Computed example of a mutant assay.
Amino acid sequence: MNTMSGLDLLSTYTSDSEDDEVNDNEKSTENSERLPLPGSIATWKGVPHHEEVYDDSSQHEGRTRSFKHERGNWATLIYIDYEPSEDMLSWMVSVLGEVPIKCNIFSEQFHISLSRTLILKFHWIESFVEETKKLCEQTDQFSLELSNVKAYTNEERTRTFLGIECVDYKGVLDHFVRNVNKFLTEYDLPPFYDDSSYHISFLWCLGNELTILDDQTHTLTIKLNQFLVEHTETRYVHVTKIHLKIGNKLYVFKLR
């Protein structure tokens, strides 16, 4: 993990890929001319590239970035989007009362990371998008099962998280990530963690509180599984799309 969550490191975005999803009132314009990459990047609403950016941790609940903004570098993340049901969200919030330290529920979008937060060079973007799209077209849809509650820290050990582990019994996700790692080496980018545990982070606190939160995971796992027995529709995450976020651009690729 990084100092901030992958999505939190990336600013608000809009979709601009040929495979991006559009809502009903946009469908009538889907055949309109679009600027090709990388020219379209000039229209992004990210940080102006001529300005120096200073991080103020007081604006991010004490969190700090694991890397600074640099001209020509684009924060990048490959992930699975997760939208919890109202019941699941209520269960996540209830955990705040179960832990002995002050924690926060994630305010950003819930997701399952499939890469580290990567630093992509401007001139890599077009080929990187195409590589990801091609891999998605070759990957079958699959399902993940929610299982255990686990505690995690980021690499700098400045934040600690509780997450719900997600298991792919058919191995499709492992195969996908291995192939992502292969093309990451072409860009001299780091692969996903060797001891990767696919999970949905839902609670966090500042500092290294791994020991304290790890002590809570057994009890919370029991309660989670009791919840899943009563709400069987929430046990599985059906994965039909992969998300790629580069700066403040989002690409959504369908699996076959």
Rank of each mutant, 00 (worst) to 15 (best):
W91A: 01
T29F: 07
Y82P: 00
W91T: 02
N31D: 14
V93Y: 04
N73T: 09
L35S: 08
S57P: 14
L35F: 04
S28P: 02
S28H: 13
S85D: 06
E83I: 07
R71W: 03
I80M: 09
S57A: 11
S66P: 02
E52D: 13
G39Y: 05
D56M: 09
K68A: 10
L35A: 08
D55M: 04
A42S: 15
A42W: 06
W44S: 15
G46W: 03
N73P: 00
W44E: 15
N73G: 06
R65C: 00
K27C: 10
T29R: 01
D87K: 15
I80C: 09
P38G: 04
S57I: 08
R71T: 15
R71K: 15
G62L: 13
R65W: 01
Y54F: 04
W91G: 01
Q59E: 11
W44L: 12
T43R: 10
L37A: 15
V53M: 05
S32I: 00
W91Y: 06
R63A: 08
H60Y: 07
R65G: 02
H60D: 09
P36E: 13
T43S: 10
F67W: 10
G46K: 03
H60T: 10
T64Q: 00
L89S: 11
R63I: 00
S32F: 12
D87Y: 09
S58G: 10
G39R: 06
E52Y: 08
E30G: 00
N31K: 11
S94R: 06
L89C: 02
H69P: 05
E86M: 08
Q59K: 10
I80S: 05
L89F: 14
Q59I: 00
T76K: 04
M92H: 12
E70M: 07
D81A: 10
V47N: 02
W91S: 01
P48F: 07
S94D: 12
P38R: 01
D55Q: 07
N31S: 14
V93R: 13
G62D: 10
E61N: 14
M88H: 03
E70T: 06
T64C: 01
D81N: 14
A42H: 10
I78S: 07
Y82V: 12
G39Q: 11
P38L: 10
S32Y: 12
E86A: 11
R71P: 02
Y79W: 15
S94W: 04
H50G: 13
G72Q: 12
D81K: 09
A75Y: 03
I41E: 14
S40L: 11
S58I: 13
N31C: 07
V47F: 09
Y54L: 02
W91R: 00
L37F: 15
L37P: 03
P84L: 02
S32E: 12
W74K: 03
G46L: 03
A75R: 02
